[in-house]
Amino acid sequence: MRKYRILLPFLLMIIGFVLIGFAWSINIGVPLNSICLILGLGLSFFGFFVFVIGLWKNQF
Rank of each mutant, 00 (worst) to 15 (best):
M1L: 08
M1P: 06
R2C: 03
R2N: 13
K3N: 08
K3C: 03
K3T: 09
K3I: 12
R5C: 09
I6L: 10
I6R: 11
I6T: 13
I6C: 08
L7C: 03
L7D: 07
L7K: 11
L8E: 00
P9F: 01
P9V: 03
P9G: 02
F10S: 08
F10T: 03
F10V: 11
L11I: 15
L11V: 13
L11H: 00
L12A: 09
M13I: 10
M13S: 08
I14K: 12
I14H: 01
I14P: 00
I14A: 15
I15D: 01
G16S: 00
G16V: 04
G16F: 00
F17S: 14
V18K: 02
V18E: 08
V18S: 09
V18A: 13
L19H: 00
L19Q: 04
L19D: 02
I20E: 07
G21R: 04
G21A: 05
A23I: 00
W24I: 14
W24H: 15
S25D: 05
S25V: 10
S25G: 03
I26S: 06
I26F: 14
N27P: 04
N27R: 15
N27I: 13
I28Q: 04
I28A: 09
G29C: 02
V30N: 13
V30K: 14
P31Y: 02
P31C: 01
P31F: 03
P31R: 11
P31H: 07
N33A: 15
S34H: 02
S34D: 10
I35G: 07
I35W: 09
I35F: 12
C36W: 08
C36M: 15
C36K: 12
L37G: 08
I38T: 07
I38P: 02
L39Y: 07
L39F: 10
G40C: 05
G40P: 10
L41E: 04
L41K: 05
L41F: 09
L41V: 11
L41Q: 04
G42V: 06
L43C: 03
L43M: 13
L43S: 04
S44D: 04
S44F: 15
S44M: 13
F45Y: 13
F45P: 01
F45E: 01
F46K: 09
F46I: 12
F46W: 05
F46E: 01
G47P: 07
G47S: 02
G47W: 03
G47Q: 02
G47D: 00
F48L: 15
F49Q: 06
F49N: 05
V50E: 04
V50A: 11
V50Q: 08
F51R: 08
F51E: 04
F51P: 05
F51Y: 14
F51S: 04
F51A: 11
V52A: 13
V52G: 01
V52E: 06
V52F: 08
I53M: 02
I53R: 08
I53T: 09
I53V: 15
G54R: 10
G54A: 07
G54K: 06
G54V: 00
G54Q: 06
L55Y: 05
L55H: 12
L55A: 05
W56M: 14
W56H: 13
W56D: 07
K57S: 09
K57W: 03
N58F: 11
N58R: 14
N58Q: 13
N58K: 15
